[in-house]
Design a protein around this nucleic acid. Structure first.
Lengths: 193, 193
DNA sequence: CCTACCGATCGGTAGG
DNA sequence: CCTACCGATCGGTAGG
C-alpha cells in the first residue's frame, strides 16, 4: 500500500517532468520548477527519485524500449513491406498523440543523458533505425517501393511524423485519423498529381 | 579599422555560439564555455555583445529574415506552383547545409527568446508558414497538387527538410544534389510504386 | 515531506 | 581584454 502511493508520486514526478522538459528543455527546468508543478519541495522529490539525470534516463529509455519492442512485433507479421511501413508510421503518430511529452523529450533532450546512458541510448536508436531501414530496403528489392536512397527515405519518414506533436491539437479542425490518412498519402503517394 | 576588428570578433562569437547552442542547447551553454571556444574570458565578450539573450536573438532573426525575404522573391516569380514549392524545398535544404548551426538554433532554441522578441519571432514564423501554405493551397486549386490537407502538407514538408542537419554529412555516401533529388522525389511522388 | 543549508556555477559588472 | 567579484540560482544532502 505504501509502495503503491510511492509509485504514484514517482509516476506523477516523471509525467510532470516530461511536460516541463518538453516546454523548457532539460537544462531550462529546475528541480524547484518541477517541485512546484508536482506540489512538493524540490528536496522532497529525492525520496521518490535519485537524481534529475535519472528522470531524463527513465523517460528516454521508456520511449526507446517502446519503439524497439513494437518494431520487433511488426517485423514478425506476414504483411507486405508497404503495410509494415504503414504500421510503423501509424505507431509513431499514435505515440506522438498519446505520449507526446515523453516522445519529445526522447527526441530532443536525449543528448543530456550522462555518458554511459548516452551511449546506450544512441545504440538503441541506431538499432531501431537499422531495422526500419531494412524494411524499406526489402520493400524496394521486392518492387513495392520506388528505388530511392534508403537513408533519405528513412529520415524523411521519421522527420515527417516527428513534428505532429508541435502543431497537432486534437479538436482543432482535424481528427487523429484524418491526420494519419493525410500523412500516409503524402509519404506514400506524394504531393504532386 | 578598429570597427572592422570588432565586427570580426563579434561575428566569431555569434558563429561559435550557434555551434555550441546547437550542440548543447542555449541553457546548456555558459558564457564561459563560449569564451573558451572563442579564445577570450567570458567577461571580455561583453565588449562585443550586450548579453547572452542578444546572441540568441541575432541568430534567430537572421535565420527568419532570410526565409522571409527568399519566400517573397519566390512568390514573385512566374513559375508553376509545383516549381515554387520545389524552390522553397531547395532553399530549406541549402540553408541547412550552408548554415546548419544557425538554422538548428532558430528551430530549437527560439523558445528561450525573451518575451517581446519571442512574440516577434513567433509572428514572423507564422507569416512565413502562411505564405508557404498559400502556395500549396493555390497549387491544389490549380489542379497541380493532390487535394491533401494544406497544414499537413506544409508541416510534413517543413519537417522532412528540417532534419537534414542531424544526419547529413557531406562526403558520406551521398552528395547535396543527390540528397535534394531524393527528398524532392519522396515529397512530390511518394515512396510507393 | 519540510527546513536549512552546502559548494558550484551562472550571467553580468566594476575597474583598470 | 583581464582580474576580481556580485547576487542569484542550481542539484543535492543532512537531519528531523
Amino acid at each position: 500500500m505504501a509502495k503503491k502511493v510511492k509509485n504514484n508520486k514517482r509516476q506523477l514526478i516523471l509525467d510532470e517532468a516530461a511536460k516541463l522538459f518538453k516546454a523548457k528543455g532539460f537544462g531550462g527546468t529546475s528541480m524547484r520548477d518541477l517541485g512546484a508543478q508536482v506540489g512538493m519541495e524540490a528536496a522532497s522529490m529525492y525520496n521518490h527519485i535519485n537524481s534529475k539525470d535519472e528522470i531524463l534516463e527513465i523517460i528516454c529509455f521508456h520511449v526507446s524500449d517502446t519503439y524497439i519492442s513494437q518494431l520487433a512485433q511488426i517485423e514478425q507479421t506476414q504483411a507486405s513491406y508497404v503495410d509494415k511501413i504503414k504500421a510503423l508510421i501509424h505507431l509513431h503518430i499514435r505515440l506522438m498523440i498519446e505520449d507526446g511529452a515523453a516522445v519529445s523529450v526522447a527526441n530532443n533532450d536525449w543528448k543530456y543523458l550522462t555518458a554511459d546512458k548516452l551511449e546506450a541510448f544512441k545504440q538503441a536508436r541506431k538499432n531501431y533505425e537499422k531495422g526500419f531501414a531494412a524494411l524499406i530496403e526489402q520493400g524496394i528489392a521486392a518492387g513495392e517501393l520506388q528505388p530511392v536512397n534508403t537513408s533519405v527515405a528513412l529520415f524523411t519518414i521519421l522527420s515527417a511524423v516527428r513534428w505532429v506533436e508541435l502543431w497537432y491539437r486534437p479538436g482543432r479542425g482535424i481528427t487523429a485519423e484524418e491526420l494519419e490518412e493525410n500523412i500516409m498519402t503524402l509519404l506514400l503517394n506524394g504531393l504532386a498529381k
